[in-house]
């Protein structure tokens, strides 16, 4: 049984892994033969760049991670508040959703200068932009989750005279969690992107500003390295929630929670 699952996993993993390796090898060969423009360095040069300026990268990545996590946490708290209002008071559901759509369809790049005018640059700005960037996905997940209570279970709890607290902990939360996690998984990379955009506008430390400096000083391997670092951050955030979902919600049908 367990071995079956392992072989299934292996047969699902090797074709894309092989393709990826082949792509890297092709890049390496093409760049060795001089077919690529100077802006596309061979993968080995990007890896070497990790070795030479790894310390710089760590120095810049740390505040970015902090800003992303802080922004995500604030966004999740605010979204939980709005979703709770929307779920417990039916008539507020529509306006809360409209608010979410408004925030989502506003170009982030257009709001950012206004935010700079009000709260100035620096860490606060990065946190706020990260929070705005991931707000909608979290809100959607939570709103869908709070509405996902199964009618039969609801009636069963009613018949068994469950208290309000029991309803919340044993019924509402478990049925909401798959949706909440689906929202979190979409939102984590978006929060990384928000931090990155905020840092592009100006920062003392941050992976975004490192990327911009590398671009302006025409250092392609370093630009590539920072991009790989950002992608790793996003994948890290996504997998964090994916692992947590699997740990907490092994019982749930995972297709159910898809947004």
């Amino acid at each position: 049984m367990d071995r079956d699952r392992l072989t299934a996993l292996a047969s699902a993993v090797w074709p894309p892994a092989a393709t990826f390796a082949a792509l890297l090898a092709m890049l390496e060969i093409a760049s060795g033969a001089g077919w690529l423009p100077i802006t596309v360095p061979p993968p080995s040069a990007v890896i070497a760049e990790f070795g030479t300026s790894g310390a710089d990268l760590l120095y810049h990545v740390w505040p970015s991670i902090l800003a992303t996590v802080a922004g995500f946490a604030i966004s999740a708290l605010v979204a939980a508040g709005f979703a709770a209002v929307g779920a417990s008071w039916r008539r507020a559901g529509g306006p809360v959703f409209t608010l979410g759509v408004l925030v989502d369809s506003t170009p982030l790049i257009a709001v950012a200068p206004i935010l700079v005018a009000f709260i100035g640059g620096g860490m606060t700005l990065h946190v706020v932009v990260a929070a705005v960037a991931c707000f909608f996905s979290i809100l959607m997940g939570m709103m869908k989750g709070f509405r996902a209570v199964d009618r039969n279970s609801d009636e069963l709890f009613h018949v068994l005279a469950a208290s309000r607290w029991q309803r919340l902990v044993k019924l509402a939360l478990p049925s909401a969690l798959p949706f909440v996690f689906a929202g979190f998984k979409i939102a984590a990379p978006l929060a990384v992107l928000g931090t990155l955009i905020a840092e592009w506008m100006g920062a003392e430390r941050g992976v975004g500003i490192m990327m911009i400096y590398a671009m302006f000083s025409f250092d392609p391997p370093q630009v590539w390295m920072t991009i790989v670092a950002v992608c790793l951050m996003a994948i890290g955030g996504y997998s964090l929630f994916a692992v947590a979902e699997r740990a907490f919600l092994g019982w749930a049908d995972r297709d159910e929670g898809r947004l």
């Binding site: 074709p15 990379p189 590539w224 992608c231 994948i235």
Partner: peptide, 20 residues
Amino acid sequence: ALMPLVIGMRTVPVLAVAPL
């Protein structure tokens, strides 16, 4: 061979490659 890579790319903030 390619679909998992495409799905994986969705978890990556694609806009980050704009400077590149």
